[in-house]
């Protein structure tokens, strides 16, 4: 797998899965780690069609184009997202997919594929909406770009003030994903 100091990611899934939030969490963690970061959401009609996505860059260099054409990592949380972005992943890149929602085989032979049943794991822990955090937890472990500590600090900043009571369950989901 590529162990670049730079991650150019696409996170994609259904609207409501917390894709945008997961991307912001990573971008903000990168900022805390004093890296250069950008976060670019899709804001077009596709959001209603099945592939809400965001592009996140975490780099040691100033970010040029914030658009990710060939992701080093694709986090796919539904089938349409996998269909849309599988071919774009950089050779030797990483695909983390929610295997509880995607049943098809992966065409690419030149990328590392991690299947994690995030949605089922989230439901099992009684927090169905936190599959996104489980995916991020696995991403932290797999890339090693940002530490769990930094991501937890980021979580405190990204979670809005009136939802701070959800911190613990978010951290639990992050750790569950990390340990998978």
């Amino acid at each position: 797998m590529r162990m670049d100091l730079c991650q150019e990611m696409i996170l994609a899934g259904f609207g409501g899965q917390g894709i945008m939030f997961a991307g912001r969490l990573i971008a903000s963690a990168g900022m805390i780690a004093e890296k250069e970061v950008s976060w670019l959401p899709s804001y077009g009609p596709e959001m209603r069609g099945g592939t809400a996505n965001c592009h996140v860059i975490v780099s040691d260099q100033p970010v040029g184009s914030p658009i990710v054409v060939a992701p080093t990592t694709l986090v796919a949380m539904n089938r349409p997202s996998l269909d849309k972005f599988e071919d774009a992943v950089l050779s030797d890149g990483l695909l983390i997919m929610d295997s509880s929602l995607i049943d098809r085989k992966i065409k690419r032979k030149d990328i590392k594929v991690i299947k994690i049943p995030a949605t089922r794991m989230a439901a099992d822990m009684g927090a169905g909406k936190l599959a996104n955090m489980i995916m991020v937890g696995q991403w932290i472990k797999e890339t090693g770009l940002l530490s769990m500590e930094i991501v937890k600090m980021s979580l405190e900043k990204v979670v809005s003030a009136n939802k701070q009571d959800l911190m613990d369950i978010n951290i639990k989901a992050l750790e569950l994903g990390y340990q998978y």
Binding site: R24, S38, W39, L40, P41, P66
Partner: peptide
């Protein structure tokens, strides 16, 4: 433009 308006950066 829409990209600058929508994107987040530090």
């Amino acid at each position: 433009d829409g990209m600058l308006g929508q994107m987040m950066e530090p």
